[in-house]
């Protein structure tokens, strides 16, 4: 086993573009669940509309990429409004089911033959982010000897992490304002907030829109990073990744999604490379696992991690156990 290779892979995973993108989407989710108590299990739907909103105008109408990103954000706002109006009045668990269903509805829709002229249906869209890479300021790779990042990855990482930290900064400002106080009171007890004259519905909607826009930006970055989009890469499991990241970091902590994402991707890539090596070197015999099973094992590990976290350390890495014990719901 080549431990150094595994470690360097894991570090790459921990700070690579995916980690940044997932951190950004998880910050949005943290606004929803961590601060407002909304059980949004359809965050991937926001990412989907953000990604396609960005790509479609570029591919179909030849718009510049930045205009595409704007369209993606608007799509997310629209989705939040459409989704929020019927569901935000419902009890929390209904919201969970409605959002996960809505995200699936969107995926079915985007891959259908109806949408094919715009979205490319099951074939997806490719090569639309040239406008982004044209501005790449990095000319050479970052080479630390045991770890290299291509200029392309560096550029996505810069923008991705930059966006994530900006978003976290915005959340910090918002949460420590009276607006954030109302948001947190909605999380604790809607009726109490209502009895003090707060328009709970409006606050939930604002939260849904704001977090959804962050999801959409993350979606746009997914498209930009891979230069290829396919509706089927926006499966519900992405939302579960985000939940794991948020809870791993510690829900309702400003920096938790960032820390959570780094740790999550480190562990995930570590597991992945270690397994790959173990299988490659015959340490794990082929009768037990083959390389094509690694993806499945990885998902199972995420599930197990989510379960154990929730059962034994629901406050995550940064959360306050004392605070969590007060959560009697």
């Amino acid at each position: 086993m080549d431990l150094l290779a595994i470690l360097s892979n894991s570090v790459r995973g921990a700070f690579g573009p995916e980690a940044a993108i997932y951190a950004l989407a998880a910050i949005g989710l943290n606004i929803h669940f961590g601060y407002t108590g909304l059980l949004n299990f359809g965050q991937v739907g926001f990412m989907l509309v953000g990604a396609y909103g960005t790509a479609v105008p570029v591919v179909a109408w030849g718009w510049p990429l930045w205009a595409g990103v704007l369209v993606g954000v608007l799509c997310a706002v629209l989705l939040a409004l459409l989704l929020g109006f019927p569901t935000l009045r419902l009890r929390g668990d209904y919201l969970a089911i409605a959002t996960i269903a809505a995200a699936e509805v969107l995926r079915y829709l985007y891959r259908s033959s109806w949408a094919e002229p715009l979205t490319g249906g099951v074939f997806g869209l490719k090569q639309f982010a040239g406008g982004f890479y044209a501005f790449n300021p990095y000319s050479g790779p970052l080479d630390l000897g045991w770890l290299t990042f291509s200029p392309r990855a560096l550029w996505v990482m810069t923008v991705g992490w930059g966006a994530a930290f900006l978003a976290a900064g915005l959340v910090a400002l918002l949460i420590h304002s009276p607006w954030g106080r109302v948001l947190r009171s909605v999380r604790e007890d809607e009726q109490a907030a209502r009895s003090l004259g707060k328009n709970v519905f409006a606050y939930k909607m604002q939260s849904l829109v704001l977090g959804g826009v962050m999801g959409a930006l993350a979606g746009a970055l997914i498209g930009i990073n891979s230069q290829a989009l396919n509706p089927d890469s926006f499966m519900p499991i992405i939302t579960f990744y985000l939940w794991t990241i948020m809870i791993l970091g510690g829900a309702s902590r400003v920096l938790a999604p960032i820390v959570g994402s780094v740790v999550f991707w480190f562990l995930l890539t570590f597991l992945d490379s270690a397994l790959r090596q173990a299988i490659g070197t015959g340490l794990v015999p082929a009768s037990v696992l083959v390389a094509s099973d690694i993806g499945a094992v990885r998902f199972a590990a995420v599930g197990l991690g989510l379960m154990l976290l929730m059962m034994f350390r629901p406050a995550g890495l940064m959360g306050d156990q004392k605070e969590l014990r007060l959560d009697v719901r």
Partner: peptide
Amino acid sequence: STGLIQMFIVAIGLSLVLRHLVLV
């Protein structure tokens, strides 16, 4: 007396575990 939301998330984790074990 674990919270319902907590149990719900545990159920999601469990479903991921079981589904992907089946996949393997």
